[in-house]
Design a protein around this nucleic acid. Structure first.
Lengths: 206, 206, 206, 206
DNA sequence: GATGAATGAGTTTTCATTCAT
DNA sequence: AATGAATGAAAACTCATTCAT
């Protein structure tokens, strides 16, 4: 029920197992249309077993957001830190984001679908998590302005929404399509569009 | 229960009344957290009365999408038709979209939140409706390419996602914020960004 | 769900009906061994109907104590007020108590059994209700001391426990017996014992 | 699982240990609100271990009544046997009763609370145990009548209920109070009240 | 003997939907 | 047409009991 040890303990394995079964179920039918029984069957355990690892159905989603998603987001951060200049950081972030969601489409679906409802319901945990991502993008934009590769006449907030929205929709389109193409193949075109739109025309590397 | 006559009949008035009460309720608590009783109370009618106008709880949401949203979308179309060239059409569409959603934030919330779940669940009706909007944007882009104001090297699908995503996020940000600024004030900056990103550099009106 | 109007409304009738079915069920099997389904069947309604009149299973017991029992206690008070001197008051109280519980043995069983658990669990409502009865007895004793029919060297608290305990056990014995004798027939002997035990030997009316 | 050897074997020690942990738990939250897990934690053993010593949760309470309580009752009997005449026997019994329950308030709580439910449910074992105590009191009363210190016009059953009820309530009052006074301090006043109430006025020893 | 993770039967509770008035 | 009390199916959740280690 408590924080999941990252090690490979027996207990942690089953926690992961159930969490992933839940994500698969949520992805397929949505959170509200999924029952504990379905999740249990998907995980191959008894209904009651779920409650040894999670306090409630709601708690499962909380863990998804606070643990699974946070983990992914921290990988975004790592990837961003690998680059020096703003454009490379942006490129890395988007590439990583698409790759991560392409690898875990169930996670992606749950994230894309459920985040909205919860953003609306003022779920503090969700807002905090969203903000982590938003702030990451914002700081890249600010750095870009300092480096003179992003137009300084644009409000950071607008640019942020612009980027996040486009990436988000590219992911959604892929998810709701037959997924015949590679999601990561959209990274380069996206960045190119961003640069044209928000860029100063400076190349970034003079 | 059948298609709502657009006229001002007594019957139609109550249908509208209930539908709007439902939208307010859904906006506040989400579809699944809203009960028929709550909607009835919000509409000032008895629970059973709802069923004289709608087949089921789900049917209310269906009507929201197929009727309310369709109505709005047809106004988008009208607005687009007022302009001749692609850029003005795009400008008009975005402006109209933002204005419509700013005027009806409850509708906007329900739309933004619930559409995702249903897009995922392969709800034919939803897909059809979404496509109406998508196709509208696509046709503007194609026209733009013909008019040489939109880069011809860009796939229409990408540009479409790019525009739709950005507009979508601008709306979401506004909805989930304290709504202190005018949503329509974002229209011009958005168009400007799009033109820079996807434009050829030609002004469109020489 | 709210306070039950004492009138004969349709709604109030069903509230009474369910409450009494619950009391019968509790009396037979005890509160914890009784299920909502059993109560519903006993009342001849569907399970869900219970929740139109009571918030929860616990709420039913709360209503039993705060409404049903309070009603009975107020009748005790009335009966006490009919007499002037302490001895007659005591006699009236005990007689009324036994008669009331003999008439409603199910209520008596629930009261005798469940009150203890709840007295222990510091249920404020229960303590308040118990105290109403305790205070009634105490005031009679005090009056008796003033009238010189009750020994003044005895602490009121002790006498109170003495009387209440004896009455209580007489009721329990009757309930758990085959109930072949009249419970009220124990009233006179009880009073006589109390008087001999706590009396001064003075007649009270000189 | 079988009858507990009274000796000091390892096995017997753990049986005692668990039984006492259970009593503490039952006293604090009541039988139905106590879980096997709570009892196990209180006893410092694993849940499964409980089942090496008891057949079921219910069996624990059975053992409490048949073993723990029986043990106490046998001490009552011993104490009674130390005296010759009825009055001293009664005095000894009450004194011992109060002292025993004062020393083991958890046991007292469980006894006072749970006995009622089970008396009602016609639990043969409980009835038998209760009767042991009732019979002890009855025999003292009968002897008192023979010795001419108890009025012969009173039915033994009534006197018995009278005494048992008063003692019972004195214990309950103490348990549910803040327990600031000594419970045994109530023994003498109780006996005095009984004697005045049921006595003939003859001293008993001429 | 001891453990404690797993089980699943059994309960409470909710709420969309119906239908007699 | 309108009502809202009644329904009961469906869901979340609890916990005594078991059993592999």
């Amino acid at each position: 029920m408590t924080a999941p040890a990252t090690g490979g303990s027996k207990k942690n394995e089953k926690y992961q197992h159930i969490l992933e079964a839940a994500i698969r179920t949520f992805a397929r039918k949505g959170y509200f249309n999924s029952t504990i029984s379905q999740i249990a069957r998907e995980a191959g355990v008894a209904d009651g077993t779920i409650y040894l690892y999670f306090k409630s159905k709601d708690d499962i989603l909380d863990h998804f957001f606070s643990y699974k998603t946070r983990e992914v987001f921290s990988r975004f951060k790592e990837e961003v830190d690998k680059a020096d200049n703003a454009l490379d950081k942006l490129r890395n972030l988007i590439y990583r984001h698409l790759e991560e969601f392409e690898t875990n489409p169930d996670m992606a679906v749950v994230y894309q679908v459920e985040i909205r409802l919860r953003r609306r319901l003022s779920d503090d945990q969700i807002r905090e998590m969203s903000n982590t991502y938003f702030d990451l993008v914002s700081s890249i934009i600010t750095q870009g302005q300092r480096e003179d590769v992003v137009r300084r006449d644009l409000p950071v907030a607008l640019v942020k929404q612009f980027i996040i929205g486009a990436v988000d929709e590219v992911i959604s389109s892929w998810l709701y399509s037959s997924r015949k193409y590679r999601l990561v193949s959209m990274a380069e075109p996206l960045v190119e569009l961003f640069i044209r739109g928000i860029g100063t025309g400076e190349s970034g590397s003079p």
